[in-house]
Amino acid sequence: MMRRWGYKEGSGLGARGQGIIAPVKPKAQQAGIGYRKKPYNNGLEDMTPHVVQEEWILRLEERARAMKLEEDCCQKTLVLLRGMVKQGDTSKETAEALAAIVKSRKVFRGKRGEKRKLGKWKATLPSSVTRYIVEEVIMPTVAAGAREWEPSWDPTCHNWLRPWIPLIGHLPESLYDTVESKIITDFYDAVSPWKHYLDPIQWDRFARRHVVPRLALLVRKLRITPPKQIDPSFRIAMFWAPLVSAQDMVSILEKERFFEKWESAMRHWLQCAARPPLEEALAWCAGWRKLFTPDLLEDQRVLARLYAGVAMLDLGMQDLRI
Rank of each mutant, 00 (worst) to 15 (best):
V134Q: 12
R116Q: 14
C73Y: 02
A97H: 07
E54K: 10
E150N: 14
K120Q: 10
T90I: 00
I57R: 06
A146S: 01
M47P: 04
V51Y: 01
G110Y: 02
D89G: 10
Q30Y: 01
R63G: 07
E135D: 06
R112E: 14
L44C: 14
K115V: 15
I138S: 06
T77W: 02
H50P: 09
V142Q: 03
A123V: 14
A100H: 00
A123R: 15
G110K: 10
S127C: 11
K122V: 15
R63W: 10
V52N: 02
L78T: 12
T124S: 12
E136A: 10
W149N: 05
K117F: 07
N42G: 14
F108R: 00
T48L: 11
C73T: 12
V134S: 11
H50N: 12
G43P: 15
G113V: 06
V137Q: 09
E93V: 02
S91E: 01
N42C: 14
W56K: 10
L44Y: 07
A95V: 04
E55F: 02
T130G: 10
G119K: 13
M47I: 02
K86Y: 15
G88F: 07
L125T: 06
I33W: 01
A64W: 05
T48R: 02
E54R: 09
R63D: 08
K37C: 13
K76M: 13
G34A: 04
T130Q: 14
L78P: 09
A64P: 00
Q87Y: 06
T124I: 10
K86E: 15
E62S: 08
P126L: 15
A28K: 11
A31D: 05
G83A: 08
A146W: 03
R109P: 01
P126A: 12
M139E: 06
P49I: 02
V134W: 05
W149S: 05
L58I: 09
E61G: 05
M84C: 09
I101A: 11
W56S: 11
R105I: 05
W149T: 05
K68G: 09
I101G: 14
S128D: 11
S91Q: 00
A123H: 14
T141M: 04
G119C: 14
G83N: 08
V142R: 04
N42H: 15
A123N: 15
P140I: 00
